[in-house]
Design a protein around this nucleic acid. Structure first.
Lengths: 127, 127
DNA sequence: ACACGTGTCCTATGATTCATGTGACACGTG
DNA sequence: CACGTGTCACATGAATCATAGGACACGTGT
Protein backbone atom coordinates (compact mmCIF):
# COMPACT_ATOMS: atom_id res chain seq x y z
CA UNK A 1 0.00 0.00 0.00
CA UNK A 2 1.13 3.52 -0.73
CA UNK A 3 1.99 5.75 2.24
CA UNK A 4 -0.43 8.41 1.03
CA UNK A 5 -4.09 8.44 -0.05
CA UNK A 6 -5.12 9.19 -3.62
CA UNK A 7 -8.22 8.46 -5.63
CA UNK A 8 -7.62 9.41 -9.22
CA UNK A 9 -10.50 11.33 -10.77
CA UNK A 10 -11.12 12.62 -14.29
CA UNK A 11 -10.89 16.30 -15.03
CA UNK A 12 -7.35 16.96 -13.88
CA UNK A 13 -4.10 15.44 -15.20
CA UNK A 14 -3.15 12.33 -13.24
CA UNK A 15 0.39 13.55 -12.65
CA UNK A 16 -0.93 16.76 -11.09
CA UNK A 17 -3.25 14.83 -8.81
CA UNK A 18 -0.32 12.71 -7.71
CA UNK A 19 1.84 15.76 -7.03
CA UNK A 20 -0.91 17.32 -4.94
CA UNK A 21 -1.57 14.14 -2.98
CA UNK A 22 2.09 13.88 -2.02
CA UNK A 23 2.25 17.54 -1.00
CA UNK A 24 -0.74 17.09 1.27
CA UNK A 25 0.74 13.91 2.74
CA UNK A 26 4.01 15.70 3.49
CA UNK A 27 2.50 18.63 5.39
CA UNK A 28 0.07 16.39 7.21
CA UNK A 29 2.91 14.25 8.54
CA UNK A 30 1.94 11.14 6.62
CA UNK A 31 5.25 11.30 4.79
CA UNK A 32 8.05 12.10 7.19
CA UNK A 33 11.33 13.72 6.10
CA UNK A 34 14.01 11.12 5.49
CA UNK A 35 11.61 8.23 5.07
CA UNK A 36 11.62 6.14 1.92
CA UNK A 37 9.33 7.10 -0.92
CA UNK A 38 7.83 4.29 -3.05
CA UNK A 39 9.64 3.53 -6.27
CA UNK A 40 8.36 4.75 -9.61
CA UNK A 41 7.25 1.25 -10.51
CA UNK A 42 5.57 0.67 -7.14
CA UNK A 43 3.59 3.90 -7.40
CA UNK A 44 2.54 3.17 -10.96
CA UNK A 45 1.52 -0.37 -10.05
CA UNK A 46 -0.55 0.64 -7.02
CA UNK A 47 -2.33 3.47 -8.81
CA UNK A 48 -2.72 1.49 -12.05
CA UNK A 49 -1.04 4.27 -14.00
CA UNK A 50 1.87 4.25 -16.40
CA UNK A 51 5.40 4.45 -14.93
CA UNK A 52 6.10 7.46 -17.12
CA UNK A 53 3.21 9.31 -15.53
CA UNK A 54 4.43 8.53 -12.01
CA UNK A 55 7.95 9.48 -13.01
CA UNK A 56 6.73 12.82 -14.31
CA UNK A 57 5.00 13.66 -11.03
CA UNK A 58 8.03 12.61 -8.98
CA UNK A 59 10.19 14.81 -11.19
CA UNK A 60 8.06 17.81 -10.28
CA UNK A 61 8.28 17.01 -6.58
CA UNK A 62 12.04 16.61 -6.80
CA UNK A 63 12.25 19.97 -8.55
CA UNK A 64 10.43 21.57 -5.64
CA UNK A 65 12.65 19.92 -3.08
CA UNK A 66 9.98 17.73 -1.53
CA UNK A 67 11.68 14.53 -2.64
CA UNK A 68 15.34 13.57 -2.93
CA UNK A 69 16.61 11.08 -5.48
CA UNK A 70 19.55 8.77 -4.88
CA UNK A 71 20.34 7.05 -8.19
CA UNK A 72 20.42 3.28 -7.97
CA UNK A 73 19.08 3.34 -4.41
CA UNK A 74 15.73 5.06 -4.40
CA UNK A 75 13.87 8.19 -3.45
CA UNK A 76 13.27 9.66 0.00
CA UNK A 77 11.17 12.47 1.39
CA UNK A 78 13.10 15.74 1.47
CA UNK A 79 14.61 16.53 4.84
CA UNK A 80 14.77 20.28 4.99
CA UNK A 81 12.39 22.25 2.80
CA UNK A 82 14.23 25.44 2.01
CA UNK A 83 12.89 28.86 2.94
CA UNK A 84 10.74 30.38 0.22
CA UNK A 85 12.80 32.00 -2.52
CA UNK A 86 11.82 35.24 -4.16
CA UNK A 87 10.58 33.30 -7.14
CA UNK A 88 8.44 31.03 -4.98
CA UNK A 89 7.04 34.00 -3.12
CA UNK A 90 6.03 35.60 -6.39
CA UNK A 91 4.26 32.40 -7.44
CA UNK A 92 2.45 32.33 -4.10
CA UNK A 93 1.45 35.97 -4.52
CA UNK A 94 -0.14 35.02 -7.82
CA UNK A 95 -2.10 32.20 -6.22
CA UNK A 96 -3.25 34.48 -3.42
CA UNK A 97 -4.39 37.03 -5.98
CA UNK A 98 -6.38 34.39 -7.85
CA UNK A 99 -8.07 33.34 -4.63
CA UNK A 100 -8.88 36.90 -3.61
CA UNK A 101 -10.32 37.65 -7.04
CA UNK A 102 -12.61 34.65 -6.78
CA UNK A 103 -13.63 35.50 -3.24
CA UNK A 104 -14.42 39.11 -4.08
CA UNK A 105 -16.52 38.10 -7.05
CA UNK A 106 -18.44 35.77 -4.76
CA UNK A 107 -19.09 38.75 -2.51
CA UNK A 108 -17.24 37.32 0.44
CA UNK A 109 -15.84 39.64 3.09
CA UNK A 110 -12.20 39.70 4.06
CA UNK A 111 -12.83 38.11 7.42
CA UNK A 112 -14.90 35.37 5.76
CA UNK A 113 -11.90 34.51 3.60
CA UNK A 114 -9.47 34.79 6.50
CA UNK A 115 -11.59 32.38 8.48
CA UNK A 116 -11.61 29.88 5.60
CA UNK A 117 -7.83 30.12 5.36
CA UNK A 118 -7.38 29.62 9.08
CA UNK A 119 -9.75 26.65 9.08
CA UNK A 120 -7.93 24.90 6.26
CA UNK A 121 -4.63 25.73 7.90
CA UNK A 122 -5.63 24.04 11.14
CA UNK A 123 -7.23 21.12 9.33
CA UNK A 124 -3.96 20.40 7.52
CA UNK A 125 -1.84 20.62 10.63
CA UNK A 126 0.11 17.53 11.60
CA UNK A 127 -0.25 16.25 15.13
CA UNK B 1 -9.97 50.08 -26.88
CA UNK B 2 -11.20 47.43 -24.49
CA UNK B 3 -12.40 48.58 -21.07
CA UNK B 4 -10.02 46.19 -19.34
CA UNK B 5 -6.30 45.42 -19.58
CA UNK B 6 -5.02 42.09 -20.89
CA UNK B 7 -1.75 40.95 -22.36
CA UNK B 8 -2.10 37.43 -23.62
CA UNK B 9 0.81 35.20 -22.69
CA UNK B 10 1.66 31.60 -23.55
CA UNK B 11 1.32 28.88 -20.94
CA UNK B 12 -2.33 29.31 -20.07
CA UNK B 13 -5.39 28.96 -22.32
CA UNK B 14 -6.35 32.28 -23.88
CA UNK B 15 -9.98 31.96 -22.84
CA UNK B 16 -8.96 31.47 -19.20
CA UNK B 17 -6.74 34.53 -19.30
CA UNK B 18 -9.64 36.52 -20.70
CA UNK B 19 -11.99 35.28 -18.00
CA UNK B 20 -9.52 36.22 -15.29
CA UNK B 21 -8.86 39.68 -16.76
CA UNK B 22 -12.57 40.47 -16.75
CA UNK B 23 -12.99 39.22 -13.19
CA UNK B 24 -10.18 41.47 -12.01
CA UNK B 25 -11.61 44.41 -13.92
CA UNK B 26 -15.01 43.90 -12.34
CA UNK B 27 -13.84 43.85 -8.74
CA UNK B 28 -11.43 46.72 -9.32
CA UNK B 29 -14.25 48.92 -10.60
CA UNK B 30 -12.97 49.15 -14.15
CA UNK B 31 -16.11 47.41 -15.33
CA UNK B 32 -19.15 48.83 -13.57
CA UNK B 33 -22.39 46.91 -13.13
CA UNK B 34 -24.88 47.76 -15.84
CA UNK B 35 -22.31 49.15 -18.26
CA UNK B 36 -21.97 47.73 -21.75
CA UNK B 37 -19.49 44.94 -22.36
CA UNK B 38 -17.71 44.81 -25.74
CA UNK B 39 -19.21 42.52 -28.34
CA UNK B 40 -17.74 39.13 -29.07
CA UNK B 41 -16.39 40.38 -32.38
CA UNK B 42 -14.96 43.56 -30.83
CA UNK B 43 -13.11 41.61 -28.14
CA UNK B 44 -11.74 39.11 -30.63
CA UNK B 45 -10.62 41.91 -32.95
CA UNK B 46 -8.87 43.93 -30.25
CA UNK B 47 -7.10 40.93 -28.76
CA UNK B 48 -6.35 39.37 -32.15
CA UNK B 49 -8.01 36.12 -31.11
CA UNK B 50 -10.71 34.04 -32.70
CA UNK B 51 -14.35 35.00 -32.05
CA UNK B 52 -15.04 31.46 -30.86
CA UNK B 53 -12.37 31.84 -28.20
CA UNK B 54 -13.81 35.14 -26.97
CA UNK B 55 -17.29 33.66 -27.04
CA UNK B 56 -16.12 30.75 -24.93
CA UNK B 57 -14.72 33.05 -22.24
CA UNK B 58 -17.83 35.20 -22.22
CA UNK B 59 -19.91 32.07 -21.84
CA UNK B 60 -18.04 31.20 -18.67
CA UNK B 61 -18.50 34.69 -17.27
CA UNK B 62 -22.22 34.58 -18.06
CA UNK B 63 -22.44 31.24 -16.30
CA UNK B 64 -20.94 32.79 -13.20
CA UNK B 65 -23.27 35.76 -13.30
CA UNK B 66 -20.64 38.39 -14.00
CA UNK B 67 -22.09 39.21 -17.40
CA UNK B 68 -25.65 39.39 -18.67
CA UNK B 69 -26.59 38.64 -22.26
CA UNK B 70 -29.45 40.30 -24.08
CA UNK B 71 -29.85 38.50 -27.41
CA UNK B 72 -29.80 40.80 -30.40
CA UNK B 73 -28.76 43.76 -28.27
CA UNK B 74 -25.52 42.97 -26.53
CA UNK B 75 -23.87 42.06 -23.26
CA UNK B 76 -23.63 44.10 -20.08
CA UNK B 77 -21.78 43.73 -16.80
CA UNK B 78 -23.86 41.85 -14.26
CA UNK B 79 -25.69 44.04 -11.82
CA UNK B 80 -26.09 41.97 -8.72
CA UNK B 81 -23.61 39.16 -8.15
CA UNK B 82 -25.53 36.62 -6.17
CA UNK B 83 -24.48 35.46 -2.73
CA UNK B 84 -22.16 32.44 -2.81
CA UNK B 85 -24.05 29.20 -3.22
CA UNK B 86 -23.10 26.03 -1.38
CA UNK B 87 -21.49 24.76 -4.56
CA UNK B 88 -19.45 27.92 -5.00
CA UNK B 89 -18.36 27.83 -1.38
CA UNK B 90 -17.14 24.29 -1.83
CA UNK B 91 -15.13 25.32 -4.87
CA UNK B 92 -13.63 28.18 -2.88
CA UNK B 93 -12.77 25.80 -0.06
CA UNK B 94 -10.84 23.72 -2.54
CA UNK B 95 -8.91 26.73 -3.76
CA UNK B 96 -8.14 27.77 -0.21
CA UNK B 97 -6.88 24.27 0.52
CA UNK B 98 -4.61 24.35 -2.50
CA UNK B 99 -3.18 27.66 -1.39
CA UNK B 100 -2.64 26.51 2.17
CA UNK B 101 -0.90 23.34 0.97
CA UNK B 102 1.48 25.40 -1.14
CA UNK B 103 2.13 27.86 1.66
CA UNK B 104 2.83 25.14 4.20
CA UNK B 105 5.24 23.40 1.86
CA UNK B 106 7.05 26.71 1.44
CA UNK B 107 7.32 26.87 5.20
CA UNK B 108 5.29 30.01 5.58
CA UNK B 109 3.54 30.77 8.83
CA UNK B 110 -0.18 31.36 9.11
CA UNK B 111 0.23 35.06 9.78
CA UNK B 112 2.55 35.36 6.80
CA UNK B 113 -0.18 33.94 4.59
CA UNK B 114 -2.87 36.02 6.24
CA UNK B 115 -0.84 39.15 5.58
CA UNK B 116 -0.43 38.20 1.91
CA UNK B 117 -4.18 37.68 1.63
CA UNK B 118 -4.95 41.01 3.29
CA UNK B 119 -2.45 42.83 1.08
CA UNK B 120 -3.91 41.43 -2.12
CA UNK B 121 -7.37 42.14 -0.81
CA UNK B 122 -6.60 45.81 -0.28
CA UNK B 123 -4.69 46.06 -3.55
CA UNK B 124 -7.72 44.82 -5.47
CA UNK B 125 -10.14 47.16 -3.77
CA UNK B 126 -11.98 49.58 -6.02
CA UNK B 127 -11.65 53.37 -5.60
C1' DA C 1 30.68 -11.68 -11.14
C1' DC C 2 25.93 -11.64 -11.18
C1' DA C 3 20.92 -10.71 -10.62
C1' DC C 4 17.90 -7.41 -9.01
C1' DG C 5 15.59 -3.07 -8.10
C1' DT C 6 16.28 1.58 -8.66
C1' DG C 7 15.93 6.13 -11.50
C1' DT C 8 16.15 7.77 -16.17
C1' DC C 9 15.45 8.16 -20.99
C1' DC C 10 13.82 7.23 -25.80
C1' DT C 11 10.34 6.64 -29.60
C1' DA C 12 5.71 5.93 -30.73
C1' DT C 13 0.50 5.98 -30.55
C1' DG C 14 -4.22 7.39 -29.37
C1' DA C 15 -7.27 10.64 -26.81
C1' DT C 16 -8.24 15.05 -25.42
C1' DT C 17 -8.01 20.01 -25.29
C1' DC C 18 -7.18 24.39 -27.39
C1' DA C 19 -7.31 27.87 -30.92
C1' DT C 20 -8.36 28.74 -35.26
C1' DG C 21 -11.02 28.64 -39.85
C1' DT C 22 -15.45 29.10 -42.15
C1' DG C 23 -20.02 29.44 -42.54
C1' DA C 24 -24.59 29.92 -40.97
C1' DC C 25 -28.91 31.31 -38.13
C1' DA C 26 -32.11 34.07 -34.75
C1' DC C 27 -32.74 38.23 -32.53
C1' DG C 28 -33.43 43.37 -31.86
C1' DT C 29 -32.55 48.06 -33.61
C1' DG C 30 -32.46 51.58 -36.97
C1' DC D 1 -34.58 45.72 -44.96
C1' DA D 2 -29.66 46.22 -43.54
C1' DC D 3 -26.87 45.97 -39.65
C1' DG D 4 -24.76 44.47 -35.38
C1' DT D 5 -25.61 41.43 -31.84
C1' DG D 6 -25.20 36.54 -29.66
C1' DT D 7 -25.12 31.67 -30.89
C1' DC D 8 -24.04 27.47 -33.10
C1' DA D 9 -22.10 23.79 -36.18
C1' DC D 10 -18.88 21.71 -38.55
C1' DA D 11 -13.64 21.15 -39.65
C1' DT D 12 -8.34 21.52 -39.13
C1' DG D 13 -3.76 21.84 -36.93
C1' DA D 14 -1.05 22.23 -32.63
C1' DA D 15 -0.25 20.99 -28.08
C1' DT D 16 -0.81 18.26 -23.97
C1' DC D 17 -1.66 13.95 -21.66
C1' DA D 18 -1.47 9.08 -20.75
C1' DT D 19 -0.23 5.06 -22.46
C1' DA D 20 2.93 1.36 -24.63
C1' DG D 21 7.31 -0.89 -24.98
C1' DG D 22 11.94 -0.94 -24.68
C1' DA D 23 16.55 0.41 -23.17
C1' DC D 24 20.53 2.03 -20.12
C1' DA D 25 23.40 3.40 -15.77
C1' DC D 26 23.61 3.03 -11.05
C1' DG D 27 23.97 0.85 -6.29
C1' DT D 28 22.99 -3.25 -3.39
C1' DG D 29 22.79 -7.86 -2.34
C1' DT D 30 24.07 -12.62 -3.13
Amino acid sequence: MLPFPLQIQPGLPISEQLVYAVKKAVISGLLKPGSKFPSVRAVSHELRIHPNTAHKAIGVLVGEGLLEVHPGIGTIVGKIPSAPSAKELKLLEGEVERLVVEAKNRRLRLDDLQRMVERQWNRLTSH
